[in-house]
Amino acid sequence: MKHFFLATILAGAMSLPAYAADYTIIAPANPGGGWDQTARSLQTVMQQEGISGNVQVQNVPGAGGTIGLAQFASQQKGNANALIVGGYVMVGAILTNKSPVTLKDVTPIARLTGEYEAVVVPASSDIKTMADLVEALKKDPGAVSWAGGSAGGTDHIAVGLIAKAAGVDPTKINYIAYSGGGEALAAILGSQVTAGVSGYGEFEAQVKAGTLRLLAVSGPERIAGVEAPTLKESGLDVVVENWRMVAAAPGLSDEQKAAVSADIEKLAKSAGWQEVLKTKGWQDSYLAGDAFNAQLDKDVAATEGVLKDIGLVK
């Protein structure tokens, strides 16, 4: 029976028509994480929409994506069929890990998805608004413990920016790093910490169920259908977006770069991709070309500044 089954898959695989470009997508993280899911969604949609007949996903995990990035930059030079998924976390990891390979060593194609950070407290907490939290922080920064993702990641950066905007020394924040959003969420729900910071998607279900209180979100505008104010409205001049992007190999000719960009644009505009964004709860933040490159430079400079403020980068 197993043979029969395998044979069916084999037949199914072979009956797919052949397309021009066979892409290999590097997910610089372990299976299961955000970058891996992005890469695997790209794989599915590219095959579905006929952009590419055969797409392989390869996991090269390690050190906030910098290992995958370094390997990609050196091994795929000039290969127009290789892509890598990355994101804002990579910007921070390159700085904290002192990675010799940076985003300048690959060819960023487009930003695909984005997510804003959310500041939450347990529903039972005395802190009702962002102003309450800022007040507590000003009174005794050590007494306010923040749960979030890994040290130097987006969540940590957001806390550093909030402290700075509130006029509190960013090196004094009591940030408790957890390995993933899940563990941090458990700590917040269990009232082990004062507040939590992570992508809004991590908290959404809990906020809707009323077990967490959403104090603010980190976007330039409110999230549609969510009541919480932005950090800006709360008097803190902070905007943080945790975005994910796709980049191509270094050393491509202009035509090759244009071809890859066209494929990615086709993907981003496709119905299949929009469907994926909806089921995964990702926001469409498609941005390509020079606009994306300019935004990238701005993000890198800002991140370096805040990491120095927190004391993670000398």
């Binding site: 395998l6 898959i9 084999l10 695989a13 392989q56 996903v57 390869q58 996991n59």
Partner: peptide
């Protein structure tokens, strides 16, 4: 063939 082609392991 089984792992790389059918199961998409790289």
């Amino acid at each position: 063939v089984i792992f790389a082609k059918l199961l998409q392991l790289s």
